[in-house]
């Protein structure tokens, strides 16, 4: 039984790492520029498509992973300069409308370019198979790699935010944008940089997702909804909050799917239990969000904001 709990915990953390990679950019863009970017999931998709296409052409997983990042960065730069930069002074409704339109454009564009049939990637031979962890549970090596990659990104982000001048500017800008601008920081350039960096994290997640799940049009949208839950729970603008929120959501969602049916089946007949539990476990994270928002309306790690 411990084996099952441990395996589900790892599954939860692995899902959490995906959510974190996407949430990190989302929370920075939202916290720093005050922009709601619904099209963030599209950047996840662009990363996955770039990965699938490049690895299809070159046959190399690593090369595709490395090359997909500049593809995402370039796409993000174009999106920022052409559309997002015009939204900074607009209200949230305009931002939602514009970025929702972006989703439609990008999805339809991808369908026209690459068709409706999903693309599939194989796990590279080096990372395929399972390894035994702590002598009790055997776990797919590729999923362990994802957890490792997520943690590495979290560490790099923490160093940048906490230890560098750039990080200081970002933290200051999230708290009070105007003051930072008055102090002579080129805020336009900083906006573009943060947007592109956030996009690259999402694209990186998309590229890693390829061998696990099918690469298809609209693959980022479902994830994006979960990511909004993560950053609201974690506190908008906080990387630490995004990490904690993402892991919490990943674990709760996985545990819910895994164990709610077992609990319900004690009270109901199997058919009814499995029907209800499917609905209940997908509600679980939203219930959690409600509880967190009631107890701490600004999330678990709120960022102090100037007026």
């Amino acid at each position: 039984m411990t084996q099952l709990y441990l395996e589900q915990l790892l599954n939860g953390i692995q899902l959490g790492m995906f959510l974190f990679l996407v949430s990190a950019g989302l929370t920075l863009v939202f916290g720093f520029m005050n922009v709601i970017n619904l099209a963030h999931g599209s950047l996840f998709m662009i990363g996955a498509y770039a990965m699938a296409l490049i690895s299809g052409m070159t046959g190399s997983f690593l090369l595709a992973l490395i090359l997909s990042l500049p593809v995402v960065a370039l796409s993000a730069w174009v999106i920022e300069v052409v559309i997002i930069s015009r939204l900074y002074t607009r209200d949230h409704l305009d931002q939602v409308l514009a970025t929702f339109a972006l989703i439609l454009f990008i999805n339809e564009g991808t369908t026209i370019l690459f068709g409706r049939t999903p693309l599939f990637l194989d796990v590279p031979p080096l990372l395929s198979g399972s390894v035994s962890l702590f002598g009790v549970v055997s776990y797919p090596l590729y999923r362990i790699t994802i957890i490792g990659a997520g943690l590495a990104v979290a560490l790099i982000l923490w160093i940048i935010i906490a230890k560098t001048r750039l990080g200081m500017q970002i933290r200051a800008g999230t708290t009070n944008r105007e003051t930072v601008e008055q102090l002579g920081v080129n805020i336009t350039r900083l906006n573009t940089m943060i947007f592109v960096a956030g996009a690259m994290f999402a694209g990186f997640a998309g590229a890693l997702a390829g061998p696990l799940t099918s690469v298809e049009v609209g693959m980022g949208e479902n994830l994006l909804i979960l990511c909004f839950v993560c950053i609201v729970i974690g506190g908008i603008g906080s990387i630490r909050g995004a990490l904690l929120g993402a892991i919490t959501i990943g674990v709760v969602d996985t545990m819910g799917r895994a164990f709610v049916p077992d609990i319900l089946v004690k009270f109901l007949n199997p058919a009814a239990a499995s029907g209800i539990s499917a609905g209940l476990s997908s509600m679980l994270i939203y219930l959690l969000m409600i509880v967190v928002l009631v107890v701490r309306p600004t999330g678990l790690f709120p960022v102090a904001r100037g007026s």
Binding site: M219, R257, A278
Partner: peptide, 15 residues
């Protein structure tokens, strides 16, 4: 029962 259109089955496979 899983969700229609679900992409990751890690939790189900572990069970």
């Amino acid at each position: 029962y899983t969700q229609l259109g679900q992409t990751d089955y890690a939790a189900e496979i572990a069970k």
